Simulated assay, not measured.
Amino acid sequence: MFIEQFLNGLGAGAMYALITLGLALIYGVMKILHVAHASVYTAGAYMGLYIFLSTGSVLIAVIVSMAFCSVLGVLIERYIYYPLLKYPPYVPLISSIALLIAIEEFCRLVAGPEVRTFPAALPFPSAVVCGVTISSTLMAVYCLTVIILIALWLLMTKTELGLAMRAVAQDMETAASLGVNTQRTVALTFVIGSAIAAIAGILMGIYYNQVYPMMGEVPAYKTLALIVVGGMGSVPGAVLASLLLGLGETFLIGYANIPLPRDALAFIAMIVILMWKPTGLLGKR
């Protein structure tokens, strides 16, 4: 039971990490709390579901969903956030919350309020660890999360785009004065973050076999708690906080039967971390 719960908690943490990655990237570059990132994740899940039902191919569904969410992310950045950068930070935040509600309601009007099943099988082998069977879907979550994290690390540390993203995250105006195309860098950050959100939405839909309009509502606020716990703008911190939350929820709520709502744990952790280390686990002063 312990090993099974550990593997399930690791899978939950990996999915939290995929949702939180884009939010941490965008906050690091633009210093905007992109709450509507969760609605991009929801839109990606719906687009993946419809493409899969039309073609029967998970790969085509993932590619089309990533492209769709990338375009959606760029449109959000260009026509909603960019004009609001001159205002205090709470203005883009309020706009982001409004956008989250608007996209959720649009999904509800178009696809209906009912829960839709996502009957897809992912082409990954199952495995047995210490007598516990890891399903092909959970193996897909593990493998894809590791692949995305390695690709993102290589992008951030080994490419000119990664250097530009780190420069813009430190100081956008100075980076622009030194020749960095900040507008292009920000747009590509939204492309990357939104594409990862699409993958997360499809994986979550397949793993739980359900897609519904409000599926991004809890992740929207839980990911905010995770980037605070990890350290505002710290991608490694966001990943670490996500994995710890997934394991914590599984062990404390599912294994130890602590009488707490599952979704409350992220906010309790946020309060404790802010009291103990206000910069977050891996945040800087």
Rank of each mutant, 00 (worst) to 15 (best):
I206E: 10
G193Q: 13
I192W: 09
I196S: 05
Y208A: 05
A220K: 02
Q210I: 06
Y212S: 12
V211K: 11
I192P: 04
P219T: 02
V211I: 13
M204Y: 14
M204L: 14
A200S: 12
A195N: 07
Q210L: 12
I196Q: 07
Y208C: 04
S194K: 07
Q210D: 03
P219G: 04
I202D: 02
K222E: 02
Y221A: 00
M214W: 10
Y212A: 12
Y207Q: 14
A220S: 15
I202V: 13
M215D: 07
G201A: 07
I199E: 00
I206M: 13
E217H: 14
Y208L: 15
G205L: 08
S194I: 10
E217R: 11
I199M: 11
E217L: 15
L203V: 03
Y208E: 06
V218S: 01
I192D: 07
Y208F: 15
Y207V: 03
G201K: 06
A200Y: 06
M214D: 12
M214N: 14
N209H: 11
I196L: 10
L203T: 00
A200I: 05
M215P: 02
P219V: 00
A198Y: 06
G216R: 04
A198D: 05
G205Q: 05
P213K: 05
I196T: 04
M214Q: 14
L203Y: 04
G205D: 08
P213G: 08
V211A: 15
A200F: 09
K222D: 02
I202M: 15
G193P: 11
S194H: 09
M204W: 14
I202E: 09
Q210T: 12
P219H: 03
L203H: 01
M204D: 06
G205N: 06
Y207H: 13
G205T: 03
K222H: 01
I199P: 04
Y212E: 15
Y212L: 15
Q210H: 05
A197V: 09
I206H: 08
M215Y: 11
V211H: 10
M215G: 04
A195Y: 12
G216K: 03
G205K: 03
P219D: 05
G193R: 12
A220N: 04
M214K: 13
I199K: 02
G201Y: 08
I192R: 09
Y221N: 02
P213Y: 12
V218I: 15
V218Q: 01
M204G: 00
N209F: 14
I206L: 12
E217P: 01
M204F: 14
G193T: 07
G205C: 10
V218H: 00
A198T: 03
P213C: 12
L203C: 06
G201P: 10
M215S: 09
G216Q: 03
P219Y: 02
A220R: 01
M215E: 07
A220D: 06
G201W: 07
A195R: 11
G201D: 08
I199H: 02
V211P: 11
I199N: 01
N209C: 11
K222R: 11
P213D: 12
A197R: 01
K222Q: 04
I199Y: 02
V218K: 03
A195C: 11
I192S: 10
V211C: 13
I202R: 03
G201M: 10
A220Q: 00
M204N: 06
G201I: 09
S194T: 06
